[in-house]
Structure formats: C-alpha cells, structure tokens
Simulated scan of single mutants.
Amino acid sequence: MAGPLTDIKVLDLSRILAGPWSTQVLADYGATVWKIERPTTGDDTRHWGPPYVKNEQGEETAESAYYLAANRGKQSIEVDITCPQGQEIIKKLAVQADIVVENYKVGGLVKYGLDYTSLKAINPRLIYCSITGFGQDGPYAQQAGYDAMIQAMGGLMSLTGEKDELPGGGPQKVGVAVADLMTGMYAVSGILAALHHRNQTGEGQHIDIALLDTQVAWLANQASNYLVSGNVPKRLGTAHPNIVPYQALPVKDGFILLAVGNDGQFKKCCEIIGCPELADQMEFSTNGQRVKHREQLIPLLERQFKQQPLVYWLEELSSAHVPCGPINTLDRVFENPQVQHRNMQFELEHPTAGKVPMVANPVNFSQTPIEYNQAPPTLGEHTEQVKKYLK
C-alpha cells in the first residue's frame, strides 16, 4: 500500500507555499494530486531563485530549490483557466476529485465558474479548501496576504528577536515562512476532518482558512499569557516567557541551547556546572521564582558555562538528562546522526536534473508507510497523460 490516502484525488489550484505545502502532505500520504499551472510560467516559485537545481552536467535547470520544497508527488498540468476549454478541463477533474485546494483572492474563481458553489453543483461530495490572507469575509477579505506581513500583523514579529535595548534588538521575522507553513498544516487537518465527516454523511463542504487567523491561533501560550494577565509580551531573544533557564547561553567556544523544563532538571544542571547551591536559594528554587528573578540568575549561569567548550557541556548535561543542544547550521543538521538515522533526507529521480535532494515527511505510519515516487514535476509534465485520462 502506498499510503493511507491512496484512493483520494486532489485538484490543486494553489501556488506559492501555503496551498502547495498542504497538497504535498496529501501527496505524501498517498493521494493523487493534479497540480494546475498557468501555461508557460507555471507556479511563481519555479522562478524564485537562485539557487536552481543543476543537471548532471552541472548546468542550471529551470527548477528552483524553493519550488522543489513543496511540490513532490504531484502531476503538473498546464491549463489556462481563463478560457472555456481550460475551465472544462478543471470541471472534469473536479467531478472526479475528492478535494480542491485553491488560494485565489476572495471571489476570484467565480467568473470562471470554478468557485465552491459552481463545483459543488457538479460534485456535492467535494471538499473545497480556500486559503487566503484574511479569510472569505471581514474588512480585510479583499486584501492580499503574504507570510512576512502576516507574521508582522499577527504579532509574531513583536515576540521574535532580541530585546530592543540590546545590540541587534528589534522585531525579526522567523527564518522560514511559518505563517504559510502552519496554514498549510491546518489546511491538511481541516481537510482530513472534512473527509471523515463525508465518510459518515456523504456531504462535502467548504473550508475557509486564513493566514492571519492561523497566525493568531498558533500564538499559543503567548496569546494566553496576554489574555490572562493583560500584559503585552515583549521580545526575549531566545529566552522563554514562562520557563527559566530556557535559552541560548554562551560557552567557551560558542553557544548552547539550555532547555530546563522542571525543578529537578535545574538542580542537576546546577550540580554539573559547579553551583549546586543555586538550586537551594529561595529566588531560584522553583520555576516560578526563576521566572521572576531571571535577570539575577542568567548572568550567574553564563559565568559558569563560559568556562568549558560546547562539547563538554553537551556530554555532561545530556548524560544527566538535562535537555540541551547545539545551535546547528543546516550543514550540521543534515550531518546529525539522529537526522540521518531517521532518513530525513533522500533523493528522487528528476527528468531534467538527475537526482534531486528532498527533505522527508516526518510522519511514520506503521501500516501504510509513505512511498516517495514522484519528484517535483517539470511544468506541464503530465498534461497529455491527464488529458488522455479524462477522455
């Protein structure tokens, strides 16, 4: 068996990242995904380089690394949805599809007869997922939304970065497009829930998911901190608002990320760094006290950690089950023995680039394991194949 969604068919009208990320996950899980692309240009991210993948002769191909990240397992079909012939192709696919994913502006597909109401009329069992910046209604509904602006508007950048008064202080965006990615993941969970509902009732439905809603939803404990206390959270660099010590600390030859999650771990940490008395001091004896007195505690810890190199602390703390880790660059991430053991990197055969590197889906099914059989497709690679399928 090639995955738990083997019999599911997905009509993917999305582009960029949030939508394609969701449909790539569905493809990983075994679904057939028809990726509809504009003739000649295709998905915008095909051109978001460099870097571009190189062929076996070392020459750059037309496939950007960005595009590769979110489009494996799909069939690319060039269709002009602005013309009647293209719309007819989409409708034929919609009749056979279980799921549609689209990220056009609100109402943008109505004029082509490809909106939810129109496609529901020909396939009432269809699950139709619309991904937009701000949702299908509300004062911002007609505005376009992009990841960085959503990170800013949704509060994430107010929480990310060093304190304003420190060197390098100020708002920062996260290093990957997390608002897009989390929206894609919420889309997947919503789609799977809707599939379950359809299995029980036979009814399809429309899913409305917005980047801004998603960003607000996954503020998680920071949102709860604000709503409960009324205090607006501030940037803390790598530090945690509710747990101390839980941050990067300087060591003799770099930095370590210390993630002490309870009082027992803190006691062990203090013993290892040569300051067992810290754990017994009233102002540091519980996590609540450490949060209140972090400004006094952290300099004491920094002084001790600077006395030994990173490897020493990793070995000593890990052997005592005190959570910690190095701050790896990406080359070290993919060299990490645990990452390699879990097969988080693999390769797929590509029609123009030979073998292309991929990052694996982290979900491991015991009965329906993921099979990676299709590299991110070249533009229109499956157009004729799918047209024959529709005849």
Rank of each mutant, 00 (worst) to 15 (best):
1 M>N: 09
2 A>G: 03
4 P>V: 11
5 L>Q: 04
7 D>G: 04
9 K>Q: 11
10 V>A: 03
14 S>V: 09
17 L>F: 13
21 W>K: 14
23 T>H: 15
27 A>N: 10
29 Y>G: 07
33 V>D: 01
37 E>N: 05
40 T>G: 08
42 G>A: 05
51 P>M: 10
61 T>D: 02
65 A>C: 11
69 A>F: 04
70 A>D: 08
72 R>T: 04
78 E>L: 01
81 I>G: 00
91 K>M: 04
94 A>C: 07
97 A>V: 05
104 Y>S: 14
108 G>S: 13
109 L>V: 11
114 L>F: 04
125 R>P: 01
127 I>E: 01
129 C>Y: 02
130 S>T: 07
130 S>E: 03
133 G>D: 01
137 D>E: 10
137 D>Y: 13
138 G>Q: 08
138 G>L: 11
141 A>S: 14
153 M>L: 15
156 L>Q: 12
161 G>F: 08
162 E>N: 14
165 E>T: 13
166 L>P: 01
171 P>Q: 06
172 Q>I: 04
172 Q>D: 05
174 V>T: 15
181 L>F: 05
181 L>S: 12
187 A>R: 08
189 S>H: 11
190 G>L: 09
191 I>G: 11
200 Q>D: 12
200 Q>E: 14
205 Q>V: 05
205 Q>C: 07
207 I>K: 00
209 I>H: 14
217 A>Y: 13
217 A>P: 00
221 N>F: 13
223 A>H: 04
224 S>V: 10
224 S>T: 12
236 L>M: 15
239 A>L: 05
240 H>N: 15
240 H>K: 10
246 Y>R: 09
246 Y>D: 11
250 P>K: 09
276 P>W: 10
279 A>R: 01
279 A>M: 06
281 Q>C: 02
283 E>H: 11
284 F>G: 06
293 H>D: 05
295 E>G: 00
297 L>C: 07
298 I>L: 10
300 L>C: 04
302 E>F: 00
309 P>H: 08
311 V>S: 14
318 S>T: 12
319 S>I: 00
322 V>E: 03
324 C>Y: 02
326 P>L: 06
327 I>F: 13
332 R>Q: 14
334 F>E: 09
336 N>K: 08
339 V>R: 02
341 H>K: 13
355 K>W: 03
356 V>C: 03
357 P>D: 03
360 A>F: 03
360 A>S: 14
361 N>C: 15
363 V>S: 08
384 E>M: 10
385 Q>Y: 09
388 K>Q: 05
389 Y>K: 14
389 Y>C: 07
